[in-house]
Design a protein around this nucleic acid. Sequence first.
DNA 1: ACGCATAAACTACCATGTAACATGGTAGAG
DNA 2: CTCTACCATGTTACATGGTAGTTTATGCGT
Lengths: 220, 220
Amino acid sequence: MEYRLRKITQPVSLMETSIESIRDAIISGQLPLGSKLSEQRLADTLGVSRSPVRDALAALQSEGLVIVSPKRGSFVFTPDLKEVDDLCEHRCILEVASVCRALSENKELLIKEMSGAVAKMRTAIKSEDPSSYTKADMSFHNTMIQCGGNRSIAASYRRTIGPLMALRAHLFTVMNSTIYRSMEEHTALLDACEKEKLAVVKTTIEQHARHLVDAYRSSL
Amino acid sequence: MEYRLRKITQPVSLMETSIESIRDAIISGQLPLGSKLSEQRLADTLGVSRSPVRDALAALQSEGLVIVSPKRGSFVFTPDLKEVDDLCEHRCILEVASVCRALSENKELLIKEMSGAVAKMRTAIKSEDPSSYTKADMSFHNTMIQCGGNRSIAASYRRTIGPLMALRAHLFTVMNSTIYRSMEEHTALLDACEKEKLAVVKTTIEQHARHLVDAYRSSL
DNA sequence: ACGCATAAACTACCATGTAACATGGTAGAG
DNA sequence: CTCTACCATGTTACATGGTAGTTTATGCGT
């Protein structure tokens, strides 16, 4: 007999939900860069005590989304150009390495997932849904990392991509005008992967990342 | 008017001290892999309350040295072979990328610092001081990362190298027999950097990292 | 002796209290 | 007007107690 009962979802800790909440608020741009984050105010807003909020802020600090200044307060990160550049270079390195490994060990899955993400991006553009496009974009890049099969790199990528996603949201008006170029680069990257042209893969990824730096520079 | 007063160094937070303490105990092998870490016991041992210990364990979890299992307890990490392999591959990628950038932008400093570390290693071997050798080894590798000049990569490297250092300590009896080979590889790497033979740099770093995986595999 | 239920011990999670520290404004002395 | 000390306020670092979930020990019946 099979019971039609929903599996009991183990109650996630308040700290986890706090992390999600605050991270989403930062990445979505709801909390502006550099804005102050008071433990007490966040706790009141989220309806929990200061402890899980405090733990969450510490975790988000290790993700680079928050900087806590001892005895002074916590703030949403505010990168300078050098930091954005560093983040993008780091991201490129991880993506290129992962894709290379994925192509040699997991090519079918990689192509399949990338194609799916590209399709979703296409429909998002046709229906003019920037939010869907962003989601598909993130899953496209996550696919490259996941198919690489290296958990250490995947964990590092998660901790590195947060600030870039937040920046992307904050620069969205700028990025929006370049959405077609972004689309083209994704398809070019998929094509290069299918044909296993590693050099093209590398330059395409680097080009793709450079545009975020350019956008940030021009926004200053 | 100039006051002849020494600037007051603000006392480091208890959390920082706790992190250092616990990390050192893990990396030095004082706390065996997989051993249980009770907040209460650590707090009693360190003479502080549970709060800074809790914060420290959370931070060490993000470094990969500790895993906390909700409501069950915290434990020193216990990697399987795949994880060690992933860590080493990740490390190689970061080191190779950093050295390439360092060679093109900061070569003099890189060579100078690497030479210094190699010299220290040499004297450590002559005086049969494994502890000094390990320190010099770590500063050798840190130099490669620091001279790369990418802070994002440096932060990621810090979070990745911890478990490998701990493993190294736990495998020390095995590693000890290969200390001469390790020494040779470091000098070979320095030589390749001086001559800017990037391909040699890459293969040497990969070879160097592989030995840790091999040592761990043979210890199972 | 063995399986099972129950209790006890242990754990981290969370709430809250306290005190030290940082900062900005303001009144008073010069 | 300027400079200084004081004070009010806001913030975190840390301590501590309660609670709920997990593991281990224990006792009981078979």
